Computed example of a mutant assay.
Amino acid sequence: MGSGGLRERKKARTREAILREAFRLFRERGYTATTVEQIAEAAEISHATFFRYFPAKEDLISLDRFPPLVEALVVQPAGTPVAVLRGAFRTAFASLSEEEIAAGHAREVFAATVPELVAANIRKSPALIREISENLAHRTGRAVDDPEIRNILGAVFGVVAMAWLRWAQDPELDGPAEIDKALAHLESGLSLPTATTDG
């Protein structure tokens, strides 16, 4: 591995250490009571290093970090918007190790239960949605604020949210596979075969 690859792995380890220690402290002391200085000390880095990775404490919670969806979306081949987004989720999860998926899922579940973190995610979600909208608009030749682009994003993230909720309730579930299955159902048109009964 070249020096560039080693640097990237070192940066990834540092970033993961910051996240791991931050969420440990959040669980022990609460989000509000935990300071950036305490997180930096626990992760054995300087205060300045923390801010090189995360501009603010609330940036530890970011919807576009787990999985790394925006980066995955950029490299997707042409296809229908739902197929492209399904591929992006698959690519994003495939770029993570099992340990990273487990740690990221644990953080996301925790983030969804702390009011301050829920609020931080809500504040951040428009930026994530805007990035994804811009990508889809460029691919389809539509305007970013086209209602049909908005409808597609709403459908995709609604389906993903329901799968994610089930994953949060059952950590033993294969979350990435469940999300892919849900998006495959959406891609097929959400068909629902009529149940048959005997007699």
Results as ranks from 00 to 15, higher is better:
21 E>S: 14
21 E>W: 05
22 A>Y: 09
23 F>N: 10
23 F>P: 01
24 R>Y: 08
24 R>G: 08
27 R>G: 02
29 R>W: 01
30 G>S: 11
30 G>M: 09
31 Y>S: 10
31 Y>T: 06
31 Y>L: 05
32 T>M: 01
32 T>Q: 13
32 T>H: 06
33 A>E: 15
33 A>R: 14
33 A>Q: 14
33 A>S: 13
35 T>H: 05
35 T>K: 08
35 T>Y: 06
35 T>A: 07
36 V>K: 00
36 V>E: 11
37 E>I: 02
38 Q>E: 15
38 Q>M: 15
38 Q>R: 14
39 I>V: 15
40 A>I: 03
40 A>T: 08
40 A>N: 11
40 A>C: 09
42 A>E: 03
43 A>Q: 12
43 A>C: 10
43 A>N: 11
44 E>L: 00
44 E>F: 05
45 I>R: 03
46 S>F: 11
46 S>I: 11
46 S>H: 12
46 S>G: 15
47 H>E: 10
47 H>I: 00
48 A>I: 07
48 A>V: 13
49 T>A: 15
49 T>Q: 14
49 T>C: 09
50 F>N: 02
51 F>I: 03
52 R>A: 08
52 R>N: 11
53 Y>V: 00
53 Y>D: 02
54 F>T: 06
55 P>Q: 10
55 P>I: 07
57 K>L: 05
57 K>D: 09
57 K>E: 07
58 E>W: 03
58 E>H: 13
58 E>S: 12
59 D>A: 14
61 I>T: 10
62 S>L: 07
62 S>R: 12
62 S>F: 09
62 S>C: 11
62 S>H: 15
63 L>Y: 13
63 L>W: 12
63 L>S: 14
64 D>H: 03
65 R>Y: 01
66 F>K: 01
67 P>W: 11
67 P>I: 09
67 P>S: 12
69 L>V: 01
69 L>Q: 06
69 L>H: 04
70 V>M: 02
71 E>A: 15
71 E>S: 12
71 E>N: 11
71 E>Q: 13
71 E>M: 00
72 A>I: 09
73 L>M: 13
74 V>A: 11
74 V>D: 12
76 Q>C: 09
77 P>T: 09
77 P>A: 12
78 A>Q: 15
79 G>C: 05
80 T>N: 10
80 T>I: 00
81 P>A: 08
81 P>L: 10
81 P>I: 04
81 P>V: 07
83 A>G: 08
83 A>S: 11
84 V>W: 03
84 V>S: 03
85 L>A: 04
86 R>M: 08
86 R>I: 00
86 R>C: 00
86 R>T: 05
86 R>N: 04
87 G>M: 02
87 G>R: 05
88 A>R: 02
88 A>F: 03
88 A>K: 03
88 A>D: 01
91 T>Y: 08
91 T>L: 10
92 A>K: 03
92 A>E: 03
92 A>D: 02
92 A>G: 08
93 F>M: 03
94 A>F: 06
94 A>G: 04
95 S>T: 14
96 L>D: 06
97 S>F: 05
97 S>R: 07
98 E>F: 00
98 E>Q: 14
99 E>P: 00
99 E>S: 12
99 E>N: 00
100 E>K: 01
101 I>R: 15
101 I>Y: 08
102 A>I: 02
102 A>N: 06
103 A>F: 10
103 A>T: 03
104 G>S: 12
104 G>C: 04
107 R>L: 01
108 E>H: 05
108 E>P: 00
109 V>H: 02
109 V>Y: 02
